[in-house]
Design a binder for these strands. Structure first.
Lengths: 281, 281
DNA sequence: TTGCTCCTCACGTCACGTGAGGTGGC
DNA sequence: TTGCTCCTCACGTCACGTGAGGTGGC
């Protein structure tokens, strides 16, 4: 019979703390091969060393315990590796986000925030293909990277051509709550087959008409990480003139990460709903 | 008088959630410019937009709130930037650690773990300069990167020459608890001035004699992130033969990150204390 | 008056860490 | 018998998120 290890021994052998091993037991991630019914002592088998080494590495790359458990429970090697590579892709996104945040921080410290000019515009009524979902703040970038190709593909399959740049509507309370409904849209000509209300050009893609309305607009140049600076300038302008009203905020993506790899090239219009178009002063 | 913003407005202007703003208020990180005594309403001033933008970026690069508060409270620009660059240095270490963990994970999945041979050795009595501290697990690498230059400098100032590679003793319970006392040491000749017990060659550096004792030894080749694999092989060997005994585990750093930038070049001996030297079979 | 926004508890989340107080085997 | 290791609660940490239940101004 193979030797068994106590928690203390298993801890030294795996570089996992005793407390972590207790926690992994309770969470069902790495239950001991045997638990003494009388004393409650945990006994780990040599076979569990390989699993422990995997758990330690997965935790070091910040995989949540529920997913670690799923990876260990996977019936075959392919299942394991699928779970792992999904997570590593997410990790890469996270690291890219951190790099962008560092750049954004350094820009804030060195470059003086130059406020862009604010204009007023009556957003026109627009026939669109839309795709909506509940999206959390940190996931917006990835979500858009999926939504717009889907809208473009849907338009293409219906023989429609987009009539302008895509955009998105951020429902009320979206920023206050850190997430909520986002509607990505792509303008199409009203006569286009895809624009008929009865037509659903692809799963989840819906043809609608966005209503017209007065907005205050700012052009944001640069990384999405710095959007808050343009929002501050725009929102402050609107609030201080008491022009604010209910309704979603709209972003229009003029130059996107799909168009240019350099964040400095990005162009995003932010449109804030207002009560009326004031006389330009 | 400048306009003031409600939490909801300030949230949209800064892209911080209302709940986060509440939390930053309670934590003293970003208290509203004014709090209505009667209603408890929070009122934020336009001046606070800049602070909010900084807070958001610092949190995105994972600076703890207590440090964010200290940065905002810093009296001058230099104080702010010192706190920030200290944190960014830590962040770079963290990212390097994550990269190492990814490599270690991929190595575990692709390369078959080849167990290195285990040998027995009577660790000799050794005159040493030592430097000890309480170190947490994740901070060991950075701590060693400071400790050994300090030991080398202390030896140099006393006119001593190291008599072999440096090493470290990990006190009992170190792995089980995830930290504790670590003693970095550098062997010197007993006649060296630095080796005299009365002599303290530098702040915190102490001359001592490490006692002799039987050990089981394995040579670990490669990244420190993979040390657990060698510990598993070595500890399993010791436990299964019932050779285990109390006492610190010793690591000897034969090829260190200071010697080679390629992790594959690293060489570390791990010495596990045992009761006696068994006859080699 | 109805909505809307704001408020304050109180508790939940995630992955453990930190004691307190007590038991079993050499 | 003394140490040592192991055990189980119960609570703490960090940075918020999630409701519940209630108030003030248009």
């Amino acid at each position: 019979m193979a030797e068994m290890f106590t928690v203390g021994e298993f801890s030294r052998l795996t570089h996992l703390t005793v407390k972590a091993l207790h926690h992994y037991h309770e969470a069902g991630v790495l239950p001991p091969a045997r638990v003494d019914a009388a004393t409650g002592y945990r006994w780990y088998s040599p076979d569990q060393l390989a699993d422990a080494q995997l758990v330690r590495r997965l935790r070091q790359v910040r995989m949540p315990l529920t997913e670690v458990r799923a990876v260990l429970a996977a019936p075959d090697r392919a299942g394991r590796e699928a779970g792992i590579s999904t997570h590593l892709a997410r990790l890469r996104l996270e690291l890219a986000g951190t790099a962008a945040a560092v750049a954004s921080l350094q820009a804030l410290l060195t470059a003086a925030p130059e406020p862009a000019p604010i204009t007023y515009r009556l957003a026109p009524e627009q026939h669109c293909l839309t795709f909506a979902a509940d999206v959390e703040r940190h996931a917006v970038g990835a979500w858009c990277a999926e939504a717009f190709p889907r809208l473009l593909a849907a338009a293409g399959r219906s023989g429609s051509t987009p009539e302008g740049p895509g955009g998105a509507l951020y429902g009320e309370g979206w920023f206050e709550l850190g997430g909520g409904e986002v509607t990505a849209y792509l303008p199409v000509h009203p006569d286009d087959p895809a624009a008929q209300p009865s037509h659903e050009p692809a799963a989840g893609v819906v043809a609608t008409t966005l209503l017209a309305g007065p907005t205050a607009v700012i052009m944001h140049e640069g990384s999405f990480s710095d959007l808050d600076r343009s929002y501050a300038a725009l929102g402050r302008h609107v609030v201080e003139r008491d022009l604010g009203t209910r309704g979603p905020i709209r972003e229009i993506y003029l130059v996107t990460p799909a168009d240019s790899a350099d964040p400095a090239d990005l162009r995003t219009e932010v449109c804030w709903p207002i009560t009326h178009l004031p006389k330009e002063s």
